[in-house]
Computed example of a mutant assay.
Amino acid sequence: MSDATIEEAKAALRAAAHKKRAAFHPSLRDEAAKAAAAHFLDTIPLRRDEVIAGYWPIRDEMDVKSLLGRLMDTGQPVCLPVVLGDEQPLELRLWEEGAPLYEAGFGTLAPAEEAPRAEPDVILMPLLGFDRHGTRLGYGGGYYDRTLASLHKRPRLIGFAFALQEIDQIPRDAHDVPLDAIVTEQGVRHFEKAPVT
């Protein structure tokens, strides 16, 4: 499949995935987020020194704010992404206890500019869709792709999504890094590495 064909297919999948996620009733979202957070804490092993890159949810993404708070309460280092520019990787800033958060692009919040930078061991990723191979359907801006390419080590990639966001198959480009696991309100699923399609 050519790059242009892959991008066309992904654009169609994105449009459908946006609608599907937006249609998930708001009254069910909080319970789903709580269940997903519990599954993550029960299932994903973390070393105390591992840096976790979270995200501040926008629109109808699964809300991980309470999970990030619980991780910080146990002393787990947490960082949040900042959008610096259209063609740049995300900057990951440590969120230190009690530090305020500021507008960080696209409606997200992150620590102030003077906050320490971090290289994460684990990245919690928002997404529009995922498939059974761990392929992630993002928003198409390439921010996470550029960020992963800029890191010195490959972190574990853990997607957070509602179960209804699963898609039969998402075409994968050579630069698309698959998820290691997906967390939904139904549990945690780990993925084997699949070939590029």
Results as ranks from 00 to 15, higher is better:
M72K: 14
L92T: 00
D86G: 14
L101T: 04
E87I: 05
L92G: 00
L94A: 09
V64P: 02
E103Y: 07
P116F: 04
L68D: 11
G69W: 08
L92I: 00
E61L: 07
L84H: 11
P45E: 12
G85T: 00
G85Q: 04
Y102H: 14
A104N: 04
V82C: 08
R70K: 14
P81M: 09
E91C: 07
V64Q: 09
H39W: 10
E119I: 06
T108I: 09
P111G: 06
P77W: 10
G98D: 10
E114R: 14
P89E: 11
L84S: 13
P100N: 08
E61C: 05
G107Q: 05
E119T: 11
E113C: 02
A99K: 06
L90E: 03
P116Y: 04
D49V: 01
E91F: 02
L80P: 00
L41G: 03
P100W: 06
D73N: 13
G107M: 10
G75P: 00
R117G: 06
P45Y: 08
E96Q: 15
T74Q: 15
E91N: 08
L109R: 13
R59F: 11
D73F: 04
Y55N: 08
D49C: 06
G54A: 11
L46W: 03
V82I: 07
D60S: 15
L41V: 02
A110T: 00
A99R: 09
L46P: 00
V78L: 12
P81T: 03
V78T: 02
I58F: 12
T74G: 12
I44A: 03
D60I: 06
I44Q: 04
L80S: 02
P116C: 07
P111E: 12
V83A: 09
G98K: 03
R70T: 12
V82N: 06
L41E: 15
D60M: 10
W95Y: 07
I52A: 08
Q88T: 10
L94R: 11
D86V: 08
E113T: 07
G69K: 10
E96V: 08
V64K: 05
Q76M: 08
E50T: 01
C79S: 05
D63M: 07
R59W: 13
Q76G: 04
G69Q: 14
A115R: 01
A118E: 10
P100M: 09
E61A: 02
A112D: 12
R48Q: 14
V51C: 14
P77I: 04
F106M: 12
D73K: 12
G107A: 09
T74E: 15
P100L: 09
P111H: 03
R117A: 12
I58Q: 11
E97H: 15
Y55T: 01
L46I: 00
E61V: 01
I52C: 09
R59L: 14
V83T: 07
A110G: 02
G98Y: 01
D42G: 15
A112Q: 11
R70M: 13
F40V: 00
A118W: 05
E114L: 10
T74C: 13
L68M: 13
I58T: 10
L90D: 03
A112L: 05
Q76H: 13
R48S: 15
V51L: 14
G85N: 03
E97D: 15
F40K: 03
M62L: 15
A99L: 07
Y55H: 05
E50N: 06
G85P: 01
A110R: 01
Y55L: 07
W95C: 01
L94D: 08
